[in-house]
Design a protein around this nucleic acid. Structure first.
Lengths: 263, 263
DNA sequence: CATATAGTATTGCCATCCGATACAGTTGCA
DNA sequence: TGCAACTGTATCGGATGGCAATACTATATG
């Protein structure tokens, strides 16, 4: 009789192919999500539900492989550079990113505003590529950054292409956060935005994540028509009237999506 | 041309803490380096030196965890989105990236050309952040991309701050590649560039990676004075005379580095 | 229709991973 | 000072969990 497991790693009973050590290892890497400084063995053990011994062995192994490193002051561990190699491999091989990149570049050249590619991942939209414009905010720059699907133009565009029950499931699971005073957190109002996006073929978001920011999102479907990503075009309200922005930018974004899909 | 890359599976004898399964698992992720399409189990097994069974178990586990996915056509596997979460965590927690990002942003605003941050990793410089300018090439955009230390302005700047024997070791281990007709591949000529960089406090590279490209690199030292990264400023030869570029940009880059170091 | 792939599934053996415990240093509060 | 609570590191016997071989179905290719 297997003992009760306090762990968070999904080691399903009776899955003969499942390599527990590997899952535990990855859970250690995941433990760094949301960490704001280096993590000690004890912290890692706590966050992952592993014993300190297990954490020690795994950290030891990752250090030998280069993925973790002892922090500068010798207390705690941090993710290290080889992680970026994986990123690069992922982005490089992702067919969507591959096809989208040149199109996004061209798009940015035309609209002269920031263009992003984000990937649909349930409740999140994860930024995969960014073509910057002149001025730029800063942290959101980072690849891998994500925002709630329900709070962003691209997310609305994606949701507008999904069956209602899936939308409901996502909205129900979303942890709403008031990014700005104007962030919409009422699911019903969000459904309105989604309906609007379905009508227009694109979504328009005003100051949902950052004050002063206006964004247009268009969903990118896969071969079966299911939305898997979105283009965002982001600009400043100080330079654009929302309707003018929509009129001049939305057609270009839509065409970019067509170009990506057909290539 | 895609070369066969030996993937590391160091299973040191007598290392009681080493978790073999985990190392094997990571070697599977690393197997995607240089792959230009999805990899089948057999290919993974070949590249990693694992048995097909082992590859199967590991791939199965990674799929359950989300890191790998079956390719669209059902043949072969690809890295999947959760990889980007690790990236984001790495970049976010990296003290250097944290301090450098706002400075690079400011720098780009002033010079109006592309600004990169790359991290020193022995024979490679790995791109960690990029602040783009107007026009842009495409693949090099990707985070995690790397170029040989010996072929890039930032690399020369870094090498100029290292003791000669370390420089020799790196040059000796470098696989030189002729990116452009003007790429310098003679170690002695590279040493000249390094010496020049040491004198000037910055390196100037002409068409080393791409034709028409001029780049200035300045090394970023850590607290002990050892170079760990570099700033690159990259522009087009069609718009700049090399000497003018150096005169107007190098001081700004140097000041940016000072600002990063002292913060 | 034969052959060579692809991904998936099962099984018995035993090496590898397991976690308790001990050790060596720092930090910090009393 | 010294104890307490932390760091990261090291050891070890036992049994769990990973190991490789092999068989399976399905799809592609000739």
């Amino acid at each position: 009789m297997p003992q009760e497991k306090p762990v968070s790693d999904p080691s399903p009973p009776g899955d003969a192919l499942f390599v527990q050590s590997l899952a535990r290892g990855m859970s250690v890497l995941e433990a760094f999500q949301g960490a704001d400084r280096a993590l000690s063995l004890t912290q890692i053990a706590t966050r992952t539900g592993l014993t300190r011994s297990a954490a020690q062995r795994i950290v030891h192994t990752f250090r030998k492989l280069g993925y973790l490193t002892l922090a500068e002051d010798g207390r705690g561990f941090r993710l290290d550079l080889p992680i970026l190699d994986l990123t690069h491999d992922y982005l490089r091989m992702n067919p969507l990113v591959r096809r989208a990149s040149p199109v996004l570049l061209e798009l940015r050249r035309n609209v002269r505003e920031r263009v992003d590619l984000s990937l649909f991942d349930g409740q999140r939209m994860v930024y995969a590529a960014r073509m910057q414009s002149k001025r730029e905010t800063f942290f959101a720059t980072l690849v891998g950054h994500s925002v709630p699907t329900a709070c962003t133009s691209g997310g609305w565009a994606v949701l507008s292409q999904l069956p209602p029950q899936e939308v409901d499931a996502i909205l129900a699971a979303t942890q709403f956060r008031q990014f700005t005073p104007r962030t919409i957190t009422d699911p019903q109002l969000i459904r309105d935005q989604i309906a609007l996006a379905r009508e227009n073929g694109h979504a328009l978001a005003l100051e949902q994540i950052l004050m002063g920011e206006i964004a247009i999102g268009v969903a990118i479907p896969d071969a079966t028509g299911r939305p898997v990503a979105a283009i965002h075009i982001v600009a400043s309200l100080s330079e654009w009237d929302p309707e003018a922005f929509r009129r001049s930018v939305a057609p270009l974004a839509a065409e970019a999506v067509r170009s990506i899909v057909s290539s």
